[in-house]
Structure formats: C-alpha cells, structure tokens
C-alpha cells in the first residue's frame, strides 16, 4: 500500500512537467529580437517600429476602454509610424525601466514623457524636445497665490523627490515646506487646508485644478523648463537624425499644437496656455 504513494508521486511529477509544457505552449511565444539597436533601414525593412510608451499615465500615454493606446505621446508615435510607412507596436513601460528598454534595444524609441537629464543622456541619445514642463502652484480661490513672494512664511505642500521640492529648498528657503510621500496625500492636505498651496509639475496641477472646483493654478510656469524628448539607443545615428528632421518638419505645420488640441486641451481646459507646454520644431524659447 505504501508503494502506491511512491508511484503516485512519480506520476504526479510526470503530469506536472507535461502540464507545464502545455501551459507554456498556449502562452504567446514571441521570440526575441536582435540585442543591439536597429538602424532606420532595418526598421523600414521589418515593416514595424517598436515604441515604448506609458500605459497608465493619462493624458500622455494610457489605454482606453477599447484597449487602444491614447494620449499626447501616442499621437506623436502614430505620426512617426505613418511617416516611416511602417506599423507600430507599443510596449508598456514604467518610469523605472525606460532607460533599460532603450539601452538594450528592446524598443526602438522611448516616447514616455521622458525628461531630458544629464544622467540619462549618458545612457541614451535624446532627440529634439517636443514638450516642456515647469512648476505650477495651485491654491484655493479665496486666497489665490499668483506670485512666489506671496508664499513667504506660508505652508507650501510638495511631494518628496519631485523637482518642486529641490527647487523651493534651493531658491526659496523662507517658504515652509510640507512634504508628503504620495500625490494623493498631498492633494488631501490641500483640500483639508493643512497647507496654503501645492506645487508640482504644471501639467499635473492644471489637470487637477480643472476637476476640483474652488482651486486655481495661480502660477503656471515657474523655475527652469525641463524638456521632454524621444530617446533612442546610444549610437543609433540614422534613427536619431531621422527623428530630428521629422520634429523640425512637424514644427512647420504646428503638429504639436494639433496634438495638444487632440489630447491635452480637454484635460487642462481654457485656463492653460498651450505654449507653456508645447515645443514646436525642437525650439525652446
């Protein structure tokens, strides 16, 4: 009788291995591509460009209820594919893995709200910018803050690790900073009146103010402009040159203003000035 258990055990092992094989078989078996970058000609030949975008960062890159990618970055990606005459395949990326994706050639281009920094420029090649981000300050209508000087001695809410935190610490030491770990906590603090105003990227506060009545973005462009640009793998000059030419050419037809109208305007509303976000032809004023 004891022998039975041993036989059953062997049978279980064999079944397990077979079942695993069967399950693996029904998975999507997408093969690996070449490890290093693909040149412009190789992309055109393959008939498909692989672009890394965000899938959960509305309104820049997100997936709608019909499982279609949408957003400001995606609108541009669609145009790139159209002008190259190839199909587009989107890869969903996260902030932490963007550099790795492009550095290992798993995507041809990263178009995921990728801010240009010196640190990143060592690992990837940035094309010309197509957007810029500055700081914005949102406050209640009854005591609206329209100038940084008004904040002296008051409580300003910031989120830890954002550019807003470093900017105010360095340039405005007289302002008391209230620091929170999460955006949700920071917004709740503003709603409760624990702080007088909240500062972070202007895109973020503009969108928030629109859906929260009684709050307005009094300052919509503060600090140095950070630029946002597509990135390709280091050394992929053919693709980089093509992208730069494309961005310059699109500037002439005011493509990114059209992109703004199609994707961002409903989120930021009348209050926002497209020129405080959009960069045409790679020229930052």
């Amino acid at each position: 009788m004891k022998k039975n258990i041993f036989v059953k055990f062997i049978a279980a092992v064999i079944t397990a291995v077979l079942l695993a094989g069967a399950l693996a078989g029904c998975g999507k078996g997408e093969g690996g591509t070449a490890s290093s970058f693909r040149t412009l000609d190789e992309i055109k030949e393959s008939g498909k460009i692989v672009i890394g975008v965000f899938s959960d960062k509305a309104p820049f890159g997100y997936v709608d209820e019909y499982v279609e990618y949408q957003g400001y970055d995606v609108y541009f990606a669609e145009r790139i594919a159209k002008d190259l005459g190839v199909a587009v395949e989107y890869v969903s990326t996260d902030p932490a893995s963007r550099v790795e994706y492009v550095a290992t050639g798993k995507v041809d281009i990263i178009l995921a709200n990728f801010t240009v920094t010196e640190e990143r420029a060592k690992q990837v090649d940035f094309a010309l910018p197509y957007m810029k981000v500055m700081l914005g300050v949102v406050s209640p209508d009854e005591s609206l803050i329209t100038d940084v000087e008004q904040l002296n001695g008051k409580n300003l809410i910031v989120v830890k690790g954002t550019t807003a935190e470093t900017y105010f610490e360095k340039n405005h030491p007289d302002i008391n900073l209230q620091k929170y770990d999460e955006y949700a906590d920071a917004y709740n603090a503003l709603l409760d009146g624990r702080g007088d105003a909240f500062s972070t990227d202007n895109t973020e506060v503009l969108a928030w103010a629109l859906s929260n009545k009684g709050f307005t973005v009094g300052i919509d462009a503060l600090g140095n402009a950070d630029t946002i640009a597509p990135a390709v793998q280091k050394g992929n000059t053919t693709l980089l040159t093509w992208l730069n030419d494309e961005i310059k050419a699109l500037g002439e037809e005011q493509f990114f203003h059209a992109d703004y109208e199609a994707t961002l305007s409903e989120v930021y509303g009348e209050a926002a000035d497209p020129d405080s976000l959009v960069v045409e032809g790679g020229n930052i004023d």
């Binding site: 959960d56 509305a58 997936v63």
Partner: peptide, 25 residues
C-alpha cells in the same frame, strides 16, 4: 512582472483607473 512590460491583472487595473481618473476619481 509589470516592470518588464507584462500587463498582468494589477497593471490592467492601474490602466483602467488612470484612463478614468479625471471623470471617475
């Protein structure tokens, strides 16, 4: 596994929440 680009149940949830965060907070 979302960090290597696989869209599993939690990621789908985040995508749905995010796509509707302005209209359905």
């Amino acid at each position: 596994v979302v960090l290597i680009g696989i869209t599993e149940v939690l990621k789908v949830g985040k995508q749905i929440i995010d796509a509707n965060r302005f209209e359905y907070p």
